[in-house]
Each structure stands twice: as structure tokens, then as C-alpha cells.
């Protein structure tokens, strides 16, 4: 089947991986490397940084990520449906034709309901 057509993709993947890696290692030859404690500080507009950033952090994008995963899977269903739509039109059963619209409607309403919670975003 199409496995042969993926051979260049695999080679491309290897080259694409080596390209940034090679660039990073090549720059070692050219750049100075004199770390000082002041240089290695976390950048905070010249202030001495306070505390850490990797803390427990209530941030509000979690809901978006959750819905995103659901939508991503749903989008795949829709993609298959789009491929099959021409065949579905000729089939007689209205259930096969229109059940996807029910699915779409439920998903849409549920998404909007879930996002009600995230009306205000602070960060």
C-alpha cells in the first residue's frame, strides 16, 4: 500500500530531528560559555526573582484542554462522516443520515454549557 510513500517522510523526520540538534551543537563551536551566578538567575526584569514558578497554580485553561480532547475525537468522527456522506445519501435509512446532526447538536450545546464556567479568565 502506501508504506513506500512514507519512506521519504521517515528520512525527512530524521533530518528534521537532526537539523535543530545539529544547529545547537554547532553553535558550541562559536559561542563563549562563561556562566555567572547573576547571569543564571531567572529573568524578572532586573529584579531578584522571588519564589518559584513551578507551583500549584489554579489556572483556568484546564477546561479548555478537556473540551479540546473531546472535540478532537469528535472531529475525527466528523472526518469519517464527511468521507462517507456521499454513500450515506444513497442509502435509504434516515437514521444513518441524520443521527450525526443529533450528535452535533448535543455536542454544541454541551460545549457552550461547559464554557459558561469560564466566562471570566484572569491570566
Amino acid at each position: 500500500m502506501a508504506l513506500e510513500s512514507y519512506v521519504p517522510v521517515v528520512i525527512f523526520a530524521v533530518v528534521a530531528l537532526l537539523f535543530p540538534l545539529g544547529t545547537f551543537f554547532a553553535t558550541r563551536l562559536f559561542r563563549p560559555d562563561h556562566p555567572t551566578p547573576l547571569k543564571d538567575l531567572t529573568y524578572e526584569c532586573g529584579e531578584v526573582p522571588e519564589g518559584e514558578a513551578q507551583i500549584q497554580f489554579h489556572f483556568q485553561y484546564y477546561m479548555f484542554a478537556l473540551i479540546f480532547v473531546i472535540f478532537d475525537v469528535a472531529a475525527i468522527f466528523l472526518l469519517l462522516w464527511a468521507f462517507a456522506w456521499g454513500g450515506l445519501l444513497t442509502s435509504a435509512s434516515p437514521v444513518a443520515k441524520f443521527s450525526i446532526f443529533l450528535f452535533l447538536g448535543i455536542m454544541f450545546v454541551a460545549t457552550q454549557y461547559a464554557l459558561k464556567k469560564e466566562e471570566v479568565i484572569q491570566i
Binding site: A26, F30, R31, D33, K39, L41, T42, Y43
Partner: peptide, 12 residues
């Protein structure tokens, strides 16, 4: 940019 030093923050 190639000639610039590559700084890794200490806490990173």
C-alpha cells in the same frame, strides 16, 4: 545569534 552565549537559568 550563533556567537551568543547560551544561558540556562539555574532553576530551570
Amino acid at each position: 545569534l550563533i556567537q551568543k552565549e547560551n544561558i540556562t537559568p539555574r532553576n530551570a
